[in-house]
Amino acid sequence: KEYCRTLFAYEGTNEDELTFKEGEIIHLISKETGEAGWWRGELNGKEGVFPDNFAVQINEL
């Protein structure tokens, strides 16, 4: 499994977007979303897309 840590808080504006606080760990599902600048991940049981410049991939939890 791949993970990323959020660098900033983000408020999702669409139903398919994740909302998160700074410093949260998102399970990274895919970097290929069909839309440049967006990754797909899962946080707190919800799957959605989020801007990749708001997070950095990490090697271990």
Rank of each mutant, 00 (worst) to 15 (best):
K1E: 12
K1R: 08
K1N: 07
E2H: 15
E2L: 11
E2W: 05
Y3V: 05
Y3P: 02
C4E: 00
R5L: 07
T6F: 00
L7W: 05
L7S: 12
F8T: 13
A9G: 08
A9I: 05
A9M: 08
A9E: 12
A9V: 04
A9K: 12
A9D: 14
A9R: 11
Y10G: 05
Y10I: 01
Y10H: 07
Y10A: 03
E11W: 09
E11F: 11
E11P: 02
E11L: 07
T13E: 13
T13Q: 15
T13C: 15
T13H: 10
T13V: 12
N14C: 15
N14P: 02
N14K: 13
N14A: 13
N14S: 13
N14M: 10
E15T: 08
E15R: 11
E15V: 08
E15Q: 12
E15H: 14
E15N: 10
D16T: 13
D16H: 14
D16L: 12
E17Q: 15
E17W: 01
T19E: 03
T19S: 15
T19Y: 06
F20I: 05
F20S: 04
F20Q: 03
F20Y: 02
K21L: 10
K21M: 10
K21S: 13
K21W: 05
E22W: 00
E22R: 10
E22C: 07
G23N: 12
G23I: 04
E24G: 01
I25W: 02
I25L: 12
I25G: 04
I25F: 08
I26R: 01
I26G: 01
I26K: 04
I26P: 01
I26M: 04
I26D: 03
H27Y: 11
H27R: 14
H27G: 12
H27P: 06
L28V: 14
L28E: 02
L28M: 05
I29M: 10
I29A: 03
I29G: 02
S30C: 07
K31G: 05
K31S: 04
K31Q: 05
E32C: 10
E32Y: 10
E32R: 09
T33E: 06
T33R: 06
T33S: 12
T33D: 08
T33Y: 09
T33H: 10
G34T: 12
G34R: 09
E35W: 07
E35N: 14
E35H: 12
E35I: 15
E35S: 15
A36W: 09
A36G: 09
G37W: 00
G37N: 02
W38S: 03
W39F: 05
W39T: 03
W39K: 05
R40K: 14
G41C: 00
G41W: 00
E42Q: 11
E42S: 13
E42K: 14
L43V: 08
L43P: 03
L43H: 05
N44S: 09
N44E: 13
N44D: 11
G45A: 06
G45Y: 01
G45I: 06
G45T: 02
G45V: 01
K46F: 04
K46I: 08
E47K: 09
E47Q: 14
E47W: 04
G48P: 00
G48R: 01
G48M: 00
G48Q: 00
G48Y: 00
V49C: 11
V49K: 14
V49I: 14
F50K: 00
F50W: 01
F50I: 01
P51V: 00
P51W: 05
P51L: 07
D52A: 15
D52L: 13
D52V: 10
D52Q: 13
D52C: 14
D52I: 15
N53A: 14
N53W: 07
N53G: 13
N53Q: 13
N53D: 12
F54H: 14
F54D: 08
A55Y: 00
A55V: 15
A55G: 08
A55P: 02
V56H: 08
V56G: 10
V56C: 08
Q57K: 10
Q57V: 13
Q57F: 08
Q57M: 13
I58L: 13
I58G: 08
I58T: 11
N59T: 11
N59I: 02
N59K: 08
N59C: 03
N59W: 07
E60R: 10
E60M: 06
E60P: 14
L61I: 08
L61C: 15
L61V: 14
L61Q: 15
